[in-house]
């Protein structure tokens, strides 16, 4: 049985206060919602050492916003361009982030950054869809990986040897027509 953290209880209560506005009659439902939230959060492993580092956050937010703008511009350009310039492919990617919140956060961020989204995710191995097949794709993923590591204060395990545990992720889907 995991212990429920007081800090998270406060966070959930704060979120409720913002969402419901400080109305006292809303706190009957609020108390139920906050308690359910904290219990689910704890039960789903929300406390496995996820500590956001402030310095990492200060670096991550501008990076994320900048990349979001570039991702939006990039896809808008391709969607509105008469020739619709696309060169999509799947690439395998092995993450060096430790198991837990950092890795899950990383996988989710991939889907919000320019030209990439995660399509499969098994242990350390990802299958990432690229809108344009270029060397940039993998490099951008590594940059994001470092930023996420900084955000959670964890180390990226650089040793990426070994074969993927799931053969579907080893990348035979990356072969190209013509």
């Amino acid at each position: 049985m995991r212990r429920i953290s007081l800090a998270w209880l406060l966070v959930f209560a704060l979120v409720w206060t913002v969402l419901a506005a400080p109305r006292f009659d809303a706190w009957v439902a609020g108390a139920i919602a906050v308690l359910t939230g904290v219990i689910l959060h704890t039960g789903l492993g929300g406390r496995q050492g996820a500590r956001i580092h402030l310095r990492g956050l200060v670096r991550f937010v501008p990076f994320f916003l900048n990349q979001s703008v570039r991702g939006g511009l990039d896809v808008a350009f391709r969607a509105l361009h008469p020739a619709r310039p696309l060169d999509p492919t799947f690439i395998p990617f092995r993450t060096g982030l430790p198991e837990g919140p950092a890795r899950v956060f990383f996988v989710n961020c991939i889907s919000l950054l320019p030209g990439t989204f995660s399509a499969q995710f098994h242990d350390r191995d990802l299958r990432v869809h690229l809108l344009t097949d270029d060397a940039e794709g993998a490099r951008r993923l590594e940059t994001l990986e470092r930023k996420v590591a900084g955000l959670f204060g964890v180390q990226v395990d650089e040793s990426k040897e070994g074969t993927p545990a799931d053969p579907a992720l080893s990348g035979n889907g990356g072969q190209r027509h013509g």
Binding site: S68, G72, V75, A76, A79, L86
Partner: peptide, 27 residues
């Protein structure tokens, strides 16, 4: 608008997902 254009014009479901997630979220 760009996201919807991509949703209608991109060739497969994977590219269309790009259009919706990126452009619409920035919007």
């Amino acid at each position: 608008l760009a996201g919807t254009a991509g949703l209608l014009r991109f060739p497969d479901v994977y590219c269309r997902l790009h259009a919706l997630t990126k452009a619409d979220n920035l919007g």
